[in-house]
Each structure stands twice: as C-alpha cells, then as structure tokens.
Design a protein around this nucleic acid. Sequence first.
DNA 1: GTCATGTTTGACATTTGTGTCAATCATGCA
DNA 2: TGCATGATTGACACAAATGTCAAACATGAC
Lengths: 193, 193
Amino acid sequence: MAGVRQFDEAAVMEIALSVFWQQGMAATSMPDLAQATGVQRGSLYNAYGDKEAIFLRAFDLYAERFLASARASLAGETAEDVLRGFFRAAIANMTGGTPRRGCLTTKTASDGSAALPRVREALKRFLDALTDVVEEALDQPVLRAQLAVEPARAAKVIVTFTRGLAVMERVHGDRDGLLELAETLSASLVRSR
Amino acid sequence: MAGVRQFDEAAVMEIALSVFWQQGMAATSMPDLAQATGVQRGSLYNAYGDKEAIFLRAFDLYAERFLASARASLAGETAEDVLRGFFRAAIANMTGGTPRRGCLTTKTASDGSAALPRVREALKRFLDALTDVVEEALDQPVLRAQLAVEPARAAKVIVTFTRGLAVMERVHGDRDGLLELAETLSASLVRSR
DNA sequence: GTCATGTTTGACATTTGTGTCAATCATGCA
DNA sequence: TGCATGATTGACACAAATGTCAAACATGAC
C-alpha cells in the first residue's frame, strides 16, 4: 500500500482528546486541532472528514479509559467505601489539568454538541455503560443490604449526581466542596444504622 | 431628555433570554440577538456594550424567576412532598420549550462561558441563593426530623443533583426518567421508616 | 528503479462574527 | 418652533472558521 499516512494517528488522537477536554467540543475548531497536533488542517480533513469524526474517535479513548478507571475505583468492603472510591476517581478526573479541564461528558452534553445525533449517542452509550459498571459493583449481597435503594436505581442516581458535581466544579472550582457533596450523597444512599 | 431609546428594553431582554436559553450563551452571537429582537446590531452594541452585558441582564431575569418558582414549589406536609415539588418544578423548567431548552445555568456553566469572571459570579450567586432557598424550606423541625442529613447538606446535594438532571436531560431527553431519578434521590434523603 | 496510490500542502472562495463610526434621525425641553 | 442630546443605521475593516482542490510529494509493491 503506497500513499501512507505521515503522522502518528494515536498521538494525534491523544492530543485531540486533550484539546477537546480542555476547550470543549463546540469551542474547538479545526485550526485549534491542527495547531495542537502539528498536522495541517487539510490532512485532518482528508484523514477524518470533519471535527465531529475526530471528536467521536477521541471520545472513544476517553470513554474506554474512564470506564476502566471507574471499574478499578469501585472497590471496598462496605458500600460507603465503594462509593467513596468511585467519587474520588470521578472528582480526580474532572479536577485534573491546568487549568482544570472539567468533565468532558458534561461539557459535551451541555455545549450544544449533543444536537449532533452521533455525539449524543456516544454520550448516551458512555453514560449507560458507566451506569452498568456502577450497578454491577453494587449488585452484591453484602453491599445490597447496606444500600437504602436497589443497585440499579442507586447507580443511576450516582451517575447523575456525578454530572452535577461536574457542573458545580465549573462554578465553584472547589475540590473539597465536591468531596463533601459526594460524602453526603454516599451517606444518604447507605441505609442508616 | 432627548435621544430616547426606540425599542422596548424589557421586551428585548425577554427575547434575549429565550435565545440564550435555547442556544446557550457561548453559541449565541450578536447577529442572533439582533435578528430575534428586531433591533439592529449597532443599537445593541450602543445600548449594552457587548454580548456578556446582555447575557448578565437576561440571566438576572432568569434567576429571579427561577428563585420565585423554587420558593413556591417547596411546599408540602412531608419532606418527600417538599422535595417532590421542587424537583417537579426544576424538571418542568428544563423540559419546557420546543425544542426543549434545557437548563440555562447548566449550559452556561459548561459551555465555556464560566471562564468570564462576571458570568461565573452570576452563576455562583444564583446557585448559592437557590441552595439557601432549599435549605430554608427544609429547616423546619417537622421536616428536619424526616431527613437523613441536615438541611444545609441536603440542600447542597439537591441543587447539585438538579444540575445532574439537566445534563441527563440533554443526553436522554426522557422526562419520566428524570422524575424517577428525582424520586429515588428524594427517597434516599428521607430517613427510612 | 518505476509506478500507482493515497497523503500533504498551500491557496482559494465563502461564510460568519466582531467592533467601530460618521451620517442620519427622532424626541423632549426650553 | 428650534435645538441639543443621544439613538439608529448601514457600511467598513478586520478576524476567524469552513470546506475544497490541484499540484507536489512520499512510499510500498512490483
């Protein structure tokens, strides 16, 4: 096969992800991506078609990693520990970067990009998968008994609440406040002793 | 006083609010506002200075009304009723309009506009005020006794969760799902009997 | 080494938005 | 009525983004 791609696709996606994460999908332009990756605009158009296609690929990377990190974080002896682990990971995710990059899912859902069907579907798939991961982690006899609501409902509430945390992070920028909010929610979801 | 404004400021703000609400602050341009209001771009620049100034005024309108509606909705004999009323109002707010307009606060916080100090402060003021409204409604002996956590913490969790609902609305667009989520959270915040 | 293949490059045309300004206009006050 | 005041208007200059394309280029296959 002749006529071979001159740039490292994996490296470009890595950079594209960080740009999208930092600026948001809607606020990122092709020139932004070209400059950040060092790949000419024309080459990006040729290779991927448009910004949406690049975003979808980069978002796949993001989703995959987030899910893996979520799975790893949902560990503990008690329901409270499991929830604490999850929220810590989620909060670390959205408070990373300089300046703080926030939550890519939340930004994308709220900046108008969700009007694009494929983007919206990618978000939906990701959030549903995340909900499943949380539900599976909670769906064990020991933990179940400690929860005030059934795992499926608890998982939905937890994932939704995490999006709320992402919004508060944008407004208050206060990491400790986020952790405290998470503690309060966790306490509410655990059957009072 | 000669040289008098030719357009109805209140009417313009009303329209500006609906445009910002529908499209989001960042995605709205001065030409958008000019077209929607029927006021020339030059006149808007002359009267207000820039988009941010118009947004801040329109957002004041929004905040005022949302707080009033929240106060009215936080009524009921039991904590569960009070929470249900609040969530119903919040969900009605974000599922109104065609197409659904979503939550102005959440959109603004997540679309990059929060990078503007004044915008961010307006958001913060509003969310803090809303938290206070919820806290005050819950801070009554009868209700307090029914809650699993103290009113101040419950209020923060409730306001944060509502932002999460707004994100889920963008992705799933499912009103009933939002109501169910709210029910589950309410149930968790109420001390199990 | 040659060649077909697909990539890269820079330029072009188009669209959209910003911010400013001089000329024109409408109006309340004297 | 006349005028000072400030609003309105349309045009201008500028900046930034999109999408496309012909020409130049690099490379793997033969």
